[in-house]
Design a protein around this nucleic acid. Structure first.
Lengths: 351, 351
DNA sequence: TCAATAATCGCAATCGGTTTCGGATATTTA
DNA sequence: TAAATATCCGAAACCGATTGCGATTATTGA
């Protein structure tokens, strides 16, 4: 109840016999204020329990020390780790993080963009909605000089920062791994092909097959909307009832891969002997399913950190926002039991 | 690059021949402005592409339309779902959500509280850090009239809104279920006992045993710090090497329960025949592990929604912040294979 | 010692809405 | 018709910090 009168720099100024401007500059380490008074004022501010009003500061300086995040859904392992990385990095630099989820809907994304545009964010970190195919709603940020960092699911062409993994290489490696294990007929669970990550993973898959002189059978490639467990199960069912079923599956995410494992087990197909499976992302469930799912590891938290750092760098160094800067992070094949037919490949993760 | 001059209500006022005050009121549906001019001004505003500066509004009115969230870590299934619920509800009401994670450290929590206090949030939603045992750092919000909604991990006594599940009842039900399955010697993996949720679940466990006239064996109760999979595995190892091992485990979270399943399987203990296991939370991994983990379901997203609604209600209805209002949500026993010894209990979830 | 330069600091405008107070016009009542 | 009340709107202060510019004082150089 006791609502203390707000203590502003004016109050502090009066108390110390300085002007508000001096107080403000001192608290912000402005070089034009002597070290001595700066130290004195800071001490007095702390002593008096002064709390800056960041809203007022934002209004005047039109900088908000807030980073906006736009993602599909928070409660997905990769996304939440990504956000976690952003938040950690942002907070250490004195920035706040404000989030908005699109539920993979284009309309929501457009709307969220409007809201964020009006809240004076100093940078935007985006992982695109599944549906999104045009990027006009991001132009307004460019116009306002707000840096955009696209992460993982990035637009085809839009001058901005990108933080991604090499999906092509990862797709290639995953497929290559199955080939190394002796698979001759490898199916692929792909996602929406207008989304870079899924298109690139598929490219890698196809090229790996070609490099190994294996035929590319289009009927083994499933183009899913969401790569859900339902889709994965259904596709596995279809694949296993083929007269010439595949001996390997590379799924573009773990959810579908796990459902494949579970379904295959249910119908008595031996994994990995009859069917080797590798997923993508290393979601927690990948290590829990039995046999444990081989997968591609994503440095999710690190991607978030880097994305946040791009924003921070941009605002401090005053970069040119018309340039594009792409950061590509490493992925690794994490071999577990779901794909380990031979013993000579890579070491199995200890469980 | 083209940084359009900002278009303010002053510009609009000049253009329309009204005063800024009228524009402001019209845009906010103030009753003192006639319906007609309100409609006219709104149309003109949209037409002119006027965008309100929410920072300026916040400064003057000291309301920010922002809800702050303090949680342990974002990338945990329960937490991310909780946030998802908050965000969804908040956005629909025109509020933004700003998050901060404590990593379960008390010091971080205190710090985050300071930051949020200075950012003029209109409400705070908190799930306490594991370490936290005093709540002084929340008093400042009460002093400022900012409503606090504690969710799930709530303080022992602090006048505020609480949104929780009945942990006692859930613990009782979980244990009762194991008893119903014929378990006579049930171990319990508990969390830090100063955290309400774990203490209450343990109480429920103990009382269920007592109600069934089963002995309470303290040596079967593990008090963990974090309920990690490492802790779960180690405890399971110890329990299984007892000369009189338990025939059931009720774990206060799924992580430890799953590790128990995996370890037991590894050493050839049959689940559920020799050892029935039930967890808590219904994390995604619970349905993936084999045998699938019975567990207690948490309405995480709904808890987030309700928490957000409490904040919204409070700010609109201008509640008295000294009262305490507790919302208790339902939990359910979700029976899967890890605990299903008999067939006559409850229906097994289809996989 | 006096002018020139540097180091410090204050004044006041500013950011863009919100809100109090009161004025002007319209409507109702006596 | 005059007075009373409603209705609608404008002037200006205000929220609390930031910052360009000018003033003052201290330091340096000749």
């Amino acid at each position: 109840m006791a609502d203390k009168k707000k203590f502003t720099i004016y109050d502090l100024a009066k108390k110390l016999g300085y002007s508000p401007s001096t107080i403000s500059r001192a608290l912000n380490d402005h070089p034009t204020i002597s070290k001595k008074t700066t130290k004195f004022i800071k001490a007095a501010a702390k002593e008096a329990g002064y709390r800056p009003n960041s809203i007022a500061a934002s209004l005047r300086s039109s900088r908000s020390n807030t980073i906006g995040i736009m993602i599909s859904r928070i409660n997905r392992p990769f996304i939440s780790s990504l956000i976690s990385g952003v938040e950690e990095c942002a907070r250490q630099a004195g920035y706040s993080v404000i989030i908005s989820q699109s539920n993979d809907k284009y309309d929501n994304e457009v709307n969220n963009a409007k809201v964020l545009r009006d809240s004076q964010i100093s940078g935007l970190i985006v992982s695109l909605a599944m549906e999104t195919e045009d990027y006009d709603h991001f132009q307004q940020f460019v116009d306002m000089g707000i840096p955009i960092v696209f992460v993982d699911r990035v637009p085809k062409s839009f001058p901005s920062y990108h933080v991604v993994i090499d999906n092509y290489a990862a797709g290639f490696k995953a497929t290559q791994h199955l080939i190394d294990q002796g698979c001759k007929r490898i199916a692929h669970f792909a996602g929406a092909q207008h989304r870079n990550v899924y298109a690139e993973r598929k490219e890698g898959y196809i090229d790996a097959l070609k490099a190994a002189k294996l035929p590319v059978d289009e009927s083994l490639i499933y183009l899913f909307d969401t790569l859900s467990s339902e889709e994965g199960e259904k596709a596995t069912q279809e694949l296993l009832s083929l007269e010439n079923p595949p001996d390997g599956i590379f799924s573009a995410n773990d959810t579908a891969a796990v459902s494949a494992i579970i379904y295959a087990k249910k119908v008595g197909v031996n994994i990995p002997k009859d069917l080797a499976i590798i997923g993508f992302n290393d979601d927690p469930m990948a290590s829990i399913v039995d046999p444990a799912l081989s997968t591609i590891t994503h440095p999710a938290i690190k991607m978030g950190e880097i994305a946040a750092r791009r924003v921070l760098e941009h605002t401090t160094d005053n970069h040119d926002s018309s340039i594009s800067e792409v950061t590509i992070l490493n992925t690794e094949v994490l071999v577990r039991k779901s794909s380990l037919k031979s013993k000579v490949d890579k070491p199995v993760e200890q469980l």
